[in-house]
């Protein structure tokens, strides 16, 4: 994972996250699987370096847990981050201890485990770790309002107007039936911004799109604050929480992969 925003550590295993872990106990059956690349890999850790292994760790939202009130309560953020997000991290690390997918960066792991639409057991946890990390940084206190400069121009170019974009984002969020996410993505081939929703843990990364914003539509993301009223939750996200600052940074990065032509995203 290459997105790096001030104050944050990278999510992919890095030297900061080295942890000592015992070798798998005797009798643990390491899995052997044929991967998408055609290479057969055996689970478990390299025998050459049996002591030091890297796992993923929980990243911290870039604001205090009560900073999004009243639109997202401290209680919601606490549970969502310390229980749900942490649960996905723990679940993934547990799986990786015996998995042939140990050692990938998180984004590569998500693509590999998506397995062309037949997800491997690691997929849900891996994608949800990434999705939540991305979600926390998609928000900021006193967010919302209008994006600036090049981002606004790109939105107007691809959606006709900012109002159209806002309405399409809200409509797409309400059209998703059940748990999932709504996203603003940059489509690589079409070279334009687009709104999509995905079910459960599915990430547009797997389709080659570049995520710009995501909003969690699992009920755990809003039930304590909004009960069944998903519309108000999504509207408040759009009007008060979305971080256009983060969007600008992500668009700048995305422009290294996709030539948007005019208008250019200005360098901060």
């Amino acid at each position: 994972m290459r997105i790096r925003i001030a104050r944050h550590t990278e999510m992919a295993a890095s030297p900061l996250h080295l942890r000592l872990l015992p070798s798998p106990p005797a009798g643990v059956n390491l899995q052997r699987r044929q991967l998408r690349s055609g290479i057969e890999r055996k689970g478990g850790l390299s025998r050459k370096f049996p002591k030091v292994v890297c796992y993923y760790s929980l990243t911290t939202p870039p604001y205090k847990l009560d900073a999004l009130e009243p639109y997202m309560s401290r209680r919601t953020v606490e549970l969502h981050w310390a229980k749900h997000h942490q649960g996905y991290v723990d679940g993934l690390n547990k799986q990786l201890a015996t998995s042939p997918l140990y050692g990938y960066t998180l984004e590569e792991l998500i693509k590999e485990a998506y397995n062309n639409g037949n997800p491997l057991p690691e997929y849900n946890n891996a994608a949800q770790v990434w999705n939540h990390h991305f979600f926390w940084e998609s928000m900021q206190p006193e967010g919302g309002g209008l994006p600036e400069g090049g981002v606004l121009q790109q939105i107007e170019k691809d959606f006709g107007s900012f109002t159209n974009f806002r309405e399409e984002f809200i409509r797409s969020a309400l059209q998703l039936l059940g748990s999932g996410w709504v996203w603003l993505v940059l489509k690589r081939n079409e070279r334009k911004l687009s709104v999509v929703h995905t079910r459960n843990a599915i990430s547009p990364l797997a389709f080659g799109d570049i995520p710009i914003i995501n909003l969690d539509l699992w009920e755990h993301a809003y039930y304590l604050d909004y009960k069944d009223d998903r519309r108000t939750y999504v509207t408040n996200f759009m009007d008060h929480l979305i971080s256009w600052h983060t969007v600008t940074l992500r668009m700048m990065r995305a422009e290294s992969f996709v030539n948007l032509g005019e208008p250019n995203i200005p360098v901060a």
Binding site: L79, K83, H84, G87, W218, E219, H220, Y223
Partner: peptide, 12 residues
């Protein structure tokens, strides 16, 4: 097992 069936009481 939708979250709305238990979340207010049982959370995650």
């Amino acid at each position: 097992v939708w979250e709305h069936a238990y979340y207010l009481q049982y959370k995650n």
